[in-house]
Design a protein around this nucleic acid. Structure first.
Length: 492
RNA sequence: GGCAUUGUGGCCGAGUGGCUAGGCAGAGCUCUGCAAAAGCUUGUACAGCGGUUCGAAUCCGCUCGAUGCCUCCA
């Protein structure tokens, strides 16, 4: 990929609100941190979209030849149910409700998370650290922030003092908020708050005696605040300043704003060069969230067991559906949209299957080198996967025309086409070909091919009763025969 | 109320100050014993009102609507 490697890649940076030319801190290397899930319930499809967007970005960086250290954490402690003083840890609450040891909750939903991601053909991140595995690092950061005067201790809890911080730094620069506005717009909190200001956020929370998740600290037994874990883990594995921080749009405020504040309080400079935010997946025009019940679980899509769905859809179809929208756009999921994506996806895979068979000539009637460049251009423009897919369908059209000998392709162009198509479809978009065969289905294929052969003979003898019987009975079993120009193909 | 994002044809969804997005559906055609599938061709659009401009759906302003955040959320 010598011709493509040195091109400029533009990324929409949420911090500036603009597309910027991407320049890694260390040439050829990228450090990327993405906020992972809080493992207190099954991962829903909206979560998956965010992680899939960053999976695609990770994959594209790899195609460009970058060495990427991709850190995606697991939040297994510290995520408060609310910000009031009786804020309870999400994991601990779930454990109490289900009468489980907190780590049983964590284990159960971490396993679920990994299972789903594997079905969606995610690449594993380079490091997947957990909050509970980094309590010591978090305590060290709190000590540092306290020493520098940006936090205060009250009754075994430690809070970040946003007002003091804002005197020397700019709190709210990521989300476009001004502290003064926030103060005047804050809703009334419980009167007995121990925080000096409602905008302050917890770095360490004291654990009441009934709390099960607790760790010793200089301020007594307690647990870390949610925002702190990401600062601790990103700093540990990627350094005080790293290239890319990603997450869902909904984390912009307060989570990412607080991360910036914590890191700047410690190190005096901004922790991240490029902030990327993936937009929401909506269902019925509303945000998908476990807390409101407006959600579809991935497994419900794979089985079709959801009132919104008329049938089951494969993980690759769902992936293709999501990749047809830009990661910064809101995407609304519906049965119709999935059906349309399924057809498009099948068409794309069909063309890739036919690619090997297309004949080559002395000349090409289409500029495949320019087309290849356009694929890279699409991705170089803030990872524009919808444009990339439009380009892929241009190739599909060419493949079909070449098959009908209305267009031609040289041997050299054919290998460019094959390589590019495989790189983008499988390596970058992460799609899988639907005809993934195992031993059992190989045998089945053999049987179907035999029946197709028998049916062909029957048709040649004008014995249409027999040929239709074979076709109809196979159809009943869900095997679809398609009579094409050069023989019959089938779908199971 | 504040901040942010956004409003594109029947549906999903890109993009751009003047030149085709793409997919699905629809229509026409080809192939075919029939059917299905597949392939080719193809119409319809940029929320409303003002402004800037030779020219705007694309820039600016206002209005209306949608979504997110402002207490947890990818």
């Amino acid at each position: 990929m010598q011709t493509t490697k040195n091109q400029t890649l533009k990324i929409h940076n949420s911090l500036s609100g603009k597309k910027e030319i991407f320049k890694p801190i260390n040439e050829g290397h990228i450090g990327m941190y993405v906020c992972g899930p809080t493992v207190y319930s099954n991962v829903h499809l909206g979560n998956c979209r965010t992680f899939m967007s960053f999976d695609m970005i990770f994959r594209y960086f790899k195609l460009l030849g970058y060495k990427v250290r991709y850190v995606r954490n697991i939040t297994d402690a510290g995520h408060l149910v609310d910000d009031a003083d009786d804020g309870e840890d999400k994991i601990a609450k779930k454990a109490r409700l289900e009468q489980l040891e907190p780590m049983e909750v964590v284990q159960r939903y971490t396993v679920d998370f990994h299972n789903i991601l594997e079905k969606f053909n995610f690449l594993p991140p380079s490091i997947e650290p957990t909050a509970t595995g980094h309590i010591i690092e978090q305590i060290e950061i709190i000590k540092d922030i306290l020493e520098k005067g940006f936090a205060y201790e009250v009754n075994g809890s430690v809070y970040f003092d946003v007002n003091i911080f804002n005197k020397s730094h700019e709190y709210g620069k990521l989300s476009g908020r001004k502290l003064e506005d926030m103060i005047s717009n804050t809703r009334e909190l419980a009167a007995q708050s121990e925080k000096r200001s409602p905008q302050d956020f917890a770095l360490w929370k004291k654990a009441e005696p009934e709390h099960i998740m607790r760790w010793p600290s200089p301020w007594g037994d307690g647990f870390p605040g949610w925002h702190l874990e990401c600062t601790a883990m990103s700093t540990k594995y990627l350094g005080e300043t790293f290239d890319i921080h990603g997450g869902g749009m909904d984390l912009k405020f307060p989570h990412h704003e607080c991360e910036i504040a914590q890191a700047e309080a410690c190190n005096g400079h901004s922790p991240v060069n490029y902030w990327l935010h993936a937009n929401m997946l909506t269902l019925n025009g509303k945000k998908m969230a476990k807390s409101t019940g407006n959600s579809i679980l991935p497994n419900e899509i794979f089985t079709g067991e959801n009132p919104f769905l008329s049938k089951a859809f494969s993980p690759s179809v769902v992936r293709f559906f999501m990749m047809q929208a830009h990661y910064t756009s809101i995407l609304d999921i519906s049965n119709d949209a999935l059906l349309a994506s399924e057809k498009g996806y099948n068409k794309l895979m069909e063309a890739i299957d036919n690619l090997e068979k297309i004949p080559t000539k002395n000349t090409s009637s289409f500029d495949f080198k320019a087309w290849q460049q356009q694929c890279y251009d699409a991705m170089n423009d803030d990872f524009n996967s919808p444009i990339l897919i439009a380009k892929l369908f241009e190739a599909v059209k060419q493949i079909n025309l070449i098959r009908e000998e209305k267009e031609s392709i040289t041997e050299e162009d054919k290998s460019i086409l094959t390589e590019t198509l495989h790189s983008f479809v499988f390596d970058v978009l992460g799609l899988e070909n639907r005809n993934n065969t195992n031993d059992g289905s190989k045998k089945l294929e053999g049987v179907v091919e035999l029946l197709i052969e028998l049916r062909k003979e029957a048709r040649e003898n004008k014995d249409f009763a027999t040929s239709d019987k074979i076709r109809n009975q196979l159809a009943e079993m869900g095997i679809e025969l398609k009579d094409g120009k050069d023989g019959t193909t089938f779908n199971i």
